[in-house]
Design a protein around this nucleic acid. Structure first.
Length: 474
DNA sequence: TGAAATGTTGGGGCG
DNA sequence: ACGCCCCAACATTTC
C-alpha cells in the first residue's frame, strides 16, 4: 500500500524555520511535497510589481536550495491556485494540503473556497497561523469592535499572551518516492527581461539565510540605538527586514523573540512598536477591506485631487527640485526600498504639495518596492494622506527642507543620491534654489539644467493644501 | 511620526 | 537705578 503524501503549499512564508504548516506536515509522518504556485492573476489588482517579482525569484531560488539540502524539492507550478492544487493533489494522490494563512481579504476568500473544494474531494485541507502575532479576528476592543486607534491596539497586544516561541527549522523532510513535475523557476519569467536589477542585487540578499543574517546585524549593531537611528536616512539604522518579512523569509514571532531576547525591554520596545504597526495595518485591512481603494474617512471622497501627469512623472523620477524628496524617490528606484522617514516625506509631498491622489502614490510604491505589502502600503498611504485610521491630520504638512535639515543635517543622504548637487555646502544642500548664484556656479550647478528648480513653491503649496482641506470639510 | 503663527519672557543695550 | 525697546528663546495656538 502506497502512503499518500501531504502537500505543503508555500505562499508568503518562504522559510523553513517557524513554519507551522511545514512542521505539521512533517509531524504527520507522511511524505511531504512542497509546492509554490505562481498565479499573479488572482492577486489582481495588486499582482506583484516588478521589484517584488525580482525578489520573489531570488527567494524561491533560495527556498528551493534549502529544501534540497534537506532531501526535498520545491515543486513550481503556474496557474489558478484552486485548479492547480486540485490537479496536483489528484496527481500525487495527496491525503492533505497544508498552508500558512495570508490575510488580504480577497486571498482569504479564495483560500476558503479552496479549502472547501479540497475537502469535498476527500482531501484534508488545513491552514495555520504564522505570519502575524495574533489572528486579526481575535483582537477586539471592549465593545467587541476592531481597534481604530493604534495606542489602544498596542495596549491590547501588551495585555495579551506573548507570541509563542518560534518553531525550529526541520532537520529532514521526508520525500516521496516519485516527484511530480515542476516548471523551471526561470520559466515563470519573474525576473525583468531587460536587466535593470543591478542596484537591487547590490542592496539585498533575498532568502531565509539572508533574512537571518540581516536580523543578526540589526540586533547587534542598530537595535540599541533604534529610536534615534531609525530617523537617519543616511545610516542603516532601521532593521532593513521589511522585504524579508513580507515574503515570510522570517516570521514576526522570530523577530519578536529575537529582539526581546537580545536587549532590554526599553531598548527593544521602539522596534516592537513598529512590528505592531504592521499588525495594526493587517488588522484594519482585514476588518475594512475597502481600504485598499477608498479612504477610511468618507469625506475624503470629495477631496479636490488634481490630475497632473507632469508633476507625477517628476515625483516618480526624483526630479521635483526638492533634494530630500528626490533622493528618496531615487533610492526607491535604484534599490527597491526607501527609508521610512523619507517615505513619509515623499508621500506627504505627493499628496499635499502636488495634491495628487494617494492611490497613485500607492500604485507607484507597489510596483517599485521590494517590500510591497498590501496592508502596510495601504495603511501607510492613508496615514500620510490624513484619511486613514489614527492618521496624520491633513494640516500636518512636511516641509521637505526642514525635514532634510533635521534628519540629514550633514547632507550625506542627499549627496549619495543626488551627486549633481553634492558640491553644495550643508547650508544649501537642502534648498539649492536659495543658494547665491556664485555658490551654484562654483559647484557646477545650473538650476533648471543640471538639477531642477522646485516644481512648486512650498509656501504656495502649503496654503493650497490647507484651502483644499477646508473646502472638503464644508 | 509638523510647521508656522502668535504669544510670552527675560536679558542686555541704551538713554 | 530705571524704564523702554529689541529680540532671541521658548511656549502656545492654529492650521
Amino acid at each position: 500500500m502506497i502512503r499518500r503524501p501531504v502537500i505543503v503549499w508555500f505562499r508568503e512564508d518562504l522559510r523553513l524555520a517557524d513554519n507551522p504548516a511545514l512542521t505539521a506536515a512533517i509531524q504527520s509522518h507522511l511524505d511531504v511535497i512542497p509546492v509554490y504556485i505562481w498565479s499573479p492573476g488572482e492577486e489582481r489588482p495588486w499582482q506583484p510589481g516588478a521589484a517584488s517579482r525580482w525578489w520573489l525569484h531570488q527567494s524561491l531560488n533560495s527556498l528551493e536550495r534549502s529544501l534540497q539540502r534537506l532531501g526535498s524539492r520545491l515543486i513550481l507550478r503556474e496557474g489558478q491556485c484552486a485548479e492547480t492544487l486540485g490537479a496536483l493533489a489528484a496527481e500525487v494522490n495527496a491525503s492533505s494540503v497544508f498552508w500558512n494563512r495570508r490575510y488580504e481579504p480577497s486571498i482569504i476568500e479564495r483560500d476558503k473556497k479552496i479549502k472547501t473544494s479540497l475537502r469535498e474531494s476527500g482531501i484534508d485541507a488545513q491552514s495555520f497561523p504564522g505570519n502575524l502575532l495574533h489572528e486579526p479576528w481575535t483582537v477586539r476592543n471592549t465593545a467587541g469592535q476592531p481597534f481604530r486607534v493604534f495606542t489602544a491596539f498596542w495596549n491590547a497586544y501588551g495585555a495579551s499572551q506573548p507570541p509563542q516561541e518560534p518553531l525550529p527549522a526541520p532537520q529532514h523532510i521526508p520525500a516521496p518516492a516519485r516527484w511530480p513535475t515542476s516548471v523551471k523557476l526561470a520559466d515563470l519569467a519573474l525576473e525583468p527581461k531587460i536587466d535593470w536589477a543591478g542596484g537591487l542585487r547590490k542592496s539585498w540578499k533575498p532568502g531565509e539565510s539572508g533574512a537571518n543574517e540581516q536580523l543578526g546585524r540589526f540586533v547587534r549593531s542598530s537595535l540599541h540605538s533604534y529610536s534615534d537611528g531609525r530617523n537617519t536616512p543616511a545610516e542603516d539604522g532601521t532593521s532593513l527586514l521589511s522585504p524579508h518579512l513580507h515574503f515570510g523569509e522570517i516570521s514576526p514571532r522570530q523577530l519578536w523573540h529575537e529582539t526581546r531576547n537580545h536587549s532590554m525591554e526599553s531598548k527593544s520596545e521602539p522596534y516592537l512598536r513598529q512590528l505592531i504597526w504592521r499588525e495594526f495595518a493587517y488588522h484594519l485591512l482585514f476588518h475594512l477591506p475597502g481600504l485598499q481603494r477608498e479612504p477610511l474617512r468618507p469625506e475624503f471622497a470629495r477631496f479636490p485631487w488634481r490630475h497632473d501627469r507632469g508633476a507625477f512623472h517628476a515625483w516618480t523620477k526624483g526630479l521635483t527640485g526638492y533634494p530630500m524628496v528626490d533622493a528618496g524617490m531615487r533610492q526607491l528606484w535604484h534599490t527597491g526600498w526607501m527609508h521610512n522617514r523619507v517615505r513619509m516625506i515623499t508621500a506627504s509631498f505627493l499628496v499635499k504639495h502636488l495634491l495628487l491622489p494617494w492611490q497613485r502614490g500607492a500604485e507607484w510604491f507597489w510596483d517599485t518596492l521590494v517590500d510591497a505589502d498590501l496592508a502596510n502600503n495601504t495603511f501607510g498611504w492613508q496615514w500620510a494622506a490624513g484619511c486613514g485610521a489614527d492618521a496624520a491630520p491633513y494640516f500636518r504638512i512636511f516641509n521637505p527642507v526642514l525635514q532634510g535639515e533635521k534628519f540629514d543635517r550633514e547632507g550625506c543622504y542627499i549627496r549619495h543620491w543626488i551627486p549633481e548637487i553634492g558640491g553644495l555646502s550643508n547650508r544649501w544642500i537642502h534648498c539649492p534654489w536659495k543658494a547665491p548664484s556664485e555658490v551654484l556656479s562654483s559647484a557646477g550647478i545650473v538650476l533648471g539644467r543640471t538639477y531642477p528648480m522646485p516644481i512648486i513653491d512650498h509656501q504656495f503649496a502649503r496654503k493650497r493644501a490647507l484651502d483644499a482641506f477646508a473646502a472638503m470639510r464644508l
